[in-house]
């Protein structure tokens, strides 16, 4: 394992060094990552990068090959547009982790901010902690797994793909156009394999699946405004 001190490097310079090391068949540990943005952008080389610290925005964006492991936290948009490979975040990730994920696997051992998996199209996004609001919004494919608590707007306007949740209150937090369903045997097996691979202590049979409906918001029907004269009648204009 090679060590690279990123203290005085820009994200771009660091990536040049990382590509060079991976190209030579060496795995690399990055020290002093100082929440740098764009670490690992679009790397195609195979191998392993360990970031011994935290990262800024777009960690592993468009990644296409290696495995990146962040030992600290990752900033917003971790693994955006990722194509293949692996992004492992040992602590928490900011908003919009895995947005537009195309393929590959992202594992976040902590929690995430809002909108993880926004518009994702494939691959796997596993969040072991809690997830913020609007998780899996307008997803087009792939699987999003949330083992902690979920927040409002879950699966809003999901087109395709599936969201697996453990939170028993998930049903009351659903966005529109989705419903809660049982897992198939195949799904349980595949998820248990995933949990086994990443050392996650979870039994897939305890999860529920949030799946898309093709009705509702996917028709040109207006949901707003909902004009409610009864509420207006009771409204106190001086107290709000």
């Amino acid at each position: 394992m090679e060590f690279v001190d990123a203290k005085t490097l820009s994200g771009k310079d660091l990536n040049v060094i990382l590509k060079d090391r991976l190209g030579k068949g060496l795995d690399v540990t990055v020290k002093n990552s100082h929440s740098m943005h764009n670490i690992g952008t679009g790397m195609k080389e195979k191998g392993k990068i360990v970031v011994d610290g935290s990262t800024g925005f777009y960690t592993g964006g468009f990644l296409e090959g290696p495995s990146i492991e962040v030992l600290g936290d990752a900033g917003w948009y971790a693994g955006d547009n990722m194509m293949s490979g692996e992004l492992i975040i040992r602590k928490n990730a900011g908003c919009n982790a895995g947005s537009y994920l195309y393929d590959g696997t992202i594992v976040i051992y902590g929690g995430t901010g809002n909108r993880p998996g926004y518009g994702m199209k494939g691959g796997t996004l596993l969040i072991c902690g809690d997830a913020g609001g609007w998780a899996g919004q307008m997803t087009l494919g792939g699987r999003l797994i949330i083992l902690g608590k979920v927040a409002a707007g879950l699966g809003e306007s999901i087109y395709k793909g599936v969201i697996y949740v453990k939170d028993r209150e998930a049903e009351s937090k659903l966005g529109s156009n989705c419903f809660v369903d049982d897992l198939t045997g195949e799904e349980i097996t595949s998820l248990n394999d995933l949990f086994g691979k990443y050392g996650v202590d979870q039994e897939a049979a305890e999860l529920r699946a949030v799946r898309p409906m093709t009705t509702g918001r996917h028709n040109y029907v207006l949901f707003d405004p909902q004009l409610e004269p009864e509420k207006a009648r009771k409204y106190n204009p001086f107290q709000g």
Binding site: F57, Y58, G61, W76, Y77, D80, N81, C95, N96, S99, Y100, R115, Y118, G119, K121, Q137, M138, L140, G141, Y159, K160, P212, T214, R217, H218, N219, Y220
Partner: peptide, 23 residues
């Protein structure tokens, strides 16, 4: 587009990987 056939599409309103100019 990876969409279900025949839906009325109102596509994603904002970029999911850059919320503002700084990003």
């Amino acid at each position: 587009r990876q969409l279900p056939v025949g839906i009325d599409l109102h596509s994603h309103p904002r970029h999911g990987d850059a919320f503002g100019a700084d990003d």
